[in-house]
Design a protein around this nucleic acid. Structure first.
Length: 490
RNA sequence: CGGGGUGUGGCGCAGUCCGGUUAGCGCACCUGGUUUGGGACCAGGGGGUCGCAGGUUCGAAUCCUGCCACCCCGACCA
């Protein structure tokens, strides 16, 4: 085990924290519930951003930016929306500070009270729909396909690095359409973009489905989601895409004139993923030695570690490393040559394992003699000596292979931890002994879901799209149209 | 917000119960040397208003009061 990392078996939560802190991804900050994302963590987030942004652009979206602050009155316009977010909003009430007359530093200037309080956005539907009202007159103005990269604030009771912080970074797509069908199509298109990203880039298999009424986004008609399974058997909602119907158009009076000349309310969607994806990435693949990153999201894919005794030896090794390094970079592979002489190779090996660099290439005197290089892969922790002439091809293939292997491993884990339950006893046994996803019949009522949650802490993670096996609800015995996915969740 | 825990050089801790010279230890850091194929070794050195604010006392890391932050387990949530 690596120095200072708690093992998963010992304490999974502590293991997660250790990885985040020791791999240099993020730190706690001086502000309750808020984190500092450190350069290495931010570099991974940037890789996530870049790929998603490309995918959004490829599906016809444009980026824009709306204000951080939202007038309080906007929130009350959509009833279920305000109900869902009211309990976790940060509110700006004043706009000025002044010196404390009694000499104790600085205080809020009570004379500078705002006429109308401003809410720090927990999500931007309201400010955006208030704006869309000005942008939309005719069916010719539709669709509007906009995404925003932003920070939002939700005043959570209990926070955890990346998984739930009071302030987090995310993207939120907000689209406006002339027809219901087109909006639903958009909603499903984007949840599929998320699923593709999760599986192909993050190496995390996800279930796609809809949310039950209890779990649905505040203000949505239907919420589609991707659900991932973490190594401790708990589920993590990794992305959501909402069909908002005409709720926000009605709340903000956004109408358009159709081809037929009729005035109609606009149809809406919104969809988002957040820095929570970082949490998913960490928990899905990492081990007791540290972070394991899929090559496509690793800020640096290949690190070279020289092993030498003399300066002359280092010079010879450097020559070889630099040659291989530039050949790899020509192939679009990101590399780093760690020629620090202040720490020993063993220290470097451990450090790069902790940080999850996918491939490590060590070259020493023996390799110079034999024309080889020692190539170690992070996911399996295996090493192989490879002929120097073959290193470039080997690494190109290896990175692809690792991307696949990391996904395959996570997929196998999910399959091994997905079970069917036909009785409530069976259901409870699985949750207590194996955790994971449990596929079970449910009568479709919020009351039953609520009871199951109270009794087992498990919630419906999603209602899969392609499943129509009928049966009887494990809790109420009433008829069920299909199995749904239960799990304990983050 | 309820239960439990923690706060002492950058990190991890001891000391606190029972107040008393100059607050220790390991890692990290700096200098010099020897080392380098899995977290090096020796020697020398630098760094701390003991979370914050009050109070008790001749004297407070230690006792009292209040506050703050963080962690773990719940309730809430992306």
């Amino acid at each position: 085990m690596a120095k200072g990392i708690t093992s998963r078996e010992q304490n999974y939560s502590q293991w997660y924290n250790d990885i985040v802190l020791k791999a240099g991804l993020a730190d706690h900050s001086a502000v309750r519930g808020c984190m500092v994302i450190k350069p290495y963590g931010f570099a991974i987030w940037e890789k996530i951003q870049r790929q998603l942004d490309d995918m959004f652009k490829a599906t016809g979206h444009q980026n824009a930016y709306f204000p951080l602050f939202i007038p309080k009155s906007f929130f009350s316009k959509e009833a279920s929306h305000v109900k869902g977010f009211a309990k976790e909003c940060a509110v700006v009430t004043h706009y000025r500070l002044k010196n404390d007359p009694s000499g104790n530093g600085i205080i809020v200037d009570e004379d500078a009270k705002l006429e109308e309080e401003l809410i720090v956005r927990p999500t931007s539907e309201t400010i955006i729909w208030n704006t869309y009202k000005d942008w939309i007159q005719s069916y010719r103005d539709l669709p509007i396909l906009i995404n925003q990269w932003a920070n939002v604030v939700r005043w959570e009771m209990r926070t955890r690095l990346f998984l739930r912080t009071a302030e987090f970074l995310w993207q939120e797509g907000h689209t406006a359409h002339a027809t219901k069908e087109e909006a639903i199509e958009e909603t499903i298109k984007m949840v599929n973009v998320y699923a593709t990203f999760a599986e192909k880039w993050m190496g995390i298999p996800v279930l796609i489905g809809t949310k039950s009424e209890n779990e649905r986004f505040a203000g949505a008609i239907e919420t589609y989601c991707i659900e991932a399974l973490m190594q401790d058997g708990k589920a993590l909602q990794a992305g959501t895409s909402h069909f908002l119907g005409q709720n926000f158009a009605k709340a903000f009076d956004v109408k358009f004139q159709s081809k037929e000349g009729k005035l109609e309310h606009v149809w809406a969607t919104s969809w988002g993923v957040s820095t929570r994806l970082m949490g998913a990435l960490i928990m899905a693949h990492s081990d007791d030695k540290g972070l394991v990153l899929p090559p496509k999201l690793a800020p640096t894919q290949v690190v070279f570690v020289p092993i030498y005794k003399s300066d002359e030896e280092l010079a010879k090794i450097s020559e070889k490393v630099n040659e291989l390094k530039s050949k790899l970079e020509e192939k679009g592979i990101s590399t780093h040559f760690d020629n620090r002489d202040t720490v020993k190779p063993g220290f470097k090996f451990a450090e790069y394992e902790l940080k999850g660099y996918p491939v490590r290439i060590a070259i020493g005197p023996k390799d110079l003699e034999k024309g080889t290089a020692e190539i170690a892969r992070r996911d399996t922790l295996t090493k192989e000596f490879v002929d120097q002439n073959k290193v470039v091809d080997y690494v190109v293939n290896l990175l692809d292979e690792m991307q696949e292997a990391i996904f395959a491993k996570a997929l196998k884990f999910r399959e091994d931890n997905t079970h069917k339950a036909d009785t409530y006893d069976e259901f409870k046994n699985i949750l207590n002994e194996k955790a994971g996803f449990v596929l079970a019949h449910w009568d479709g009522t919020p009351e039953t879901e609520e009871k199951i949650k109270e009794e087992t802490q498990a919630t419906i993670r999603c209602i899969p799209l392609d499943n129509n096996e009928e049966g009887k609800c494990i809790h109420s015995g009433k008829p069920s149209k299909q199995r749904v996915v239960f799990a304990r969740a983050y």
